[in-house]
Design a protein around this nucleic acid. Sequence first.
DNA 1: ATGTCCCAACTTTTGGGA
Length: 251
Amino acid sequence: MKVATWNVNSLTARWPRVSEWLTATQTDVVLIQETKQNDTKFPFAELRALGYESAHYGQGQWNGVAILSRVGLEDVVTGLGSDEEARCIRATCGGLRVYSCYVPNGRALDDPHYQYKLGWLRDLHSELATRDRTQPLLVGGDFNVAFTDEDVYDPSVFDGLTHVSEPERDALRALIDTGLVDLARQQQPSGPLYTWWDYRKGAFHRAWGLRIDYLFSDADTAQRVSAVAVDRAARKGEKPSDHAPLVVTLR
DNA sequence: ATGTCCCAACTTTTGGGA
């Protein structure tokens, strides 16, 4: 079974790329962020024609998260704590409890949005810390945090900026410390595993990236992983998202 | 030129967000 997380930066703008990618890769479960749609615009019927059930938590212009599945999709839950934005959706697919998360950007260390981001990560921690440990779990999404300096192409560029601050990294560490495994790093302990490159300045071709998209699982599920890959081809070509899909293969 | 893209709107350009 293949599971991917992908921030598509508008499913409306990205539908040609997303539909082509689904057909080409036959990924079983896809965790999507930033649909930037409401439910009336979400392509439920088109996805069904491609063989996918889907659940969407949309907000219109901003945010929006979804789960696509070819292996069943049940027990959908949306939202997180008292958050009013569409940033979290979970469902059970093929025996796995899967999460699609779009963590707030934070904008700047002195911006109220940064405190919103840290609070959001605390709320996610609360939910994961009290989870049903008998259920296989896979938490994915755009976390907008680069966990270590190895996840940043040039740490000096990000000095004093969000995505690399200690409170953000501590929040990600706390999530992992509930008993989760960072699957990309399990497969590749060192070296770049970037998932996002700025549209500006030719960042992708200069390898100026960040690792800010993650797939986390419980320890037993992590033992089932046979491969993890960043699909960099999806970041190339016509009208790509600024994020590449992160894909895990489970035995 | 912050070497870009996406969205909404008092839309044919600007401002906000990432």
